[in-house]
Structures are given as C-alpha cells and as structure tokens.
Amino acid sequence: MIHSVDTILALVLLSILFSYGYSQLFRLIIVVGFQGIVVSIVPFFIGHDMTAGGIVFTIATLLIRGIIIPMSIYIAMKKRAIQSKVAPIIGYQASILCGLGVIVAATYISRQLNIPSISNYTLLFPTAIALPVTGMFLLMTRRNAIAMVLGYIIMENGIYLIGTTISVRALHIVEFGILLDVLAGVMIMATILQTIERTFDDVDTENLRTLKE
C-alpha cells in the first residue's frame, strides 16, 4: 500500500541522494530548495487536523524554506562571485556510495527502533534519520562554506520532519520559532561568509586553518 506521504518522502530521499553527488553549487541549492518545499508540504498529507493558523504557518514555512533561504544564498553566491564548485574532501563517486550507505543504514535503524506512532508511514523515519546525517556529511566533507551552509539547512529539514511527526500539538509555533532561528543563522552565516571572502578572497574553509596561530 502506497501512501501519498511515502511518495513525497521518496522524493526527499532522492534529493538526499542527489545532494551527495552534485558538484555544482547552484544545483545543490536547487536540490535543497526542492527538498525544503517537499518537506514543508508533508504536514498537509500526514493527516493532522489543519487549522487555518496551521495552514498559514505551513505555507509560510514552505515559502521560507523553499524559496527565501535558497534564493538568498543564491544571490549571495552571485553577488560575491563565489566559486561554483563545492570542493569536496571526499570525491563525488565515493560520496554517492556513502549516500547509499546512509540510506540503507537509516532504513535498518528505523526498522530496529520501530516507533509505533509513526510506523504508518514506512519511509518517514528513515528519511528523518537520513536528512541530519546527510547534513552532517556535507558539513564535514565540503570545503566550500556555502555548501556547508546548505548542509546545515538539510540538517534542519530533517529536524523539522522529526518535529512534524512526533509532536502533534504545539507543532507549528515551535517549528516556526526554529525556522526563524535558522533564517537568522543563515543571515549571520552570510555575513560571516562575506567577511571570510573579503579577507581571503575565497570561501574555502581550509583558509581558516591559517588563523590557528
């Protein structure tokens, strides 16, 4: 039996897979934006009672997650003429294989845990696990600071997914609060990025090593 939620989540998993393999920064941004939109519409399908406020919050989330954040990063990238490669520490091919491994592991773990309240949706838990891990992976293995910011956003998408599924009640307020934090975080990062870029003429985080002394 295939739920519409599961189909959506399959798309999220797919976006995870692609985020491992893309070398072009703007494609990664598109993937993250797509992921944001798809993750945001999950609450519509998951079957909670949607109040008018809830709908407004969800749509606002969707706008911020799917459009505003990616757009602002994209503009930041364009304006500063930042290098368009994500500069991996682990190669793309190895990354794709890692991504497959992460998805398999997430599926396996979710089966072991088997939380009853969300087991109606087979893919929900694996996706929720795979997203933060992917974010961490990108943070760890990409030298380009923007790719790292994107990794951070992917992590947040995962946290949002867990939040939507586990907490039913005070869902939107809390989530919205978190989202605003993230937005602020992204803005701060953009500022820091500008500083890094101005100092080093590049956003390669390897350069920060020189600050050690």
């Binding site: 897979l17 393999g21 794709i96 497959l100 998805i103 599926t107 087979t122 893919l123």
Partner: peptide, 23 residues
C-alpha cells in the same frame, strides 16, 4: 564526470530497490 553520471543510475536503482522493499 561520466563515471559519476553512470553511478547515478546505479544509485537510483539501488535506491528504488530499498524503498520498494519498504513498501
């Protein structure tokens, strides 16, 4: 970049297998 492109097809097939099994 071609190996990476071809590897995508493997990843997709593998991925489809996993989620189908879940279904």
């Amino acid at each position: 970049a071609v190996p990476q492109f071809v590897l995508t097809s493997f990843a997709l097939a593998f991925f489809a297998t996993i989620i189908t099994l879940e279904f």
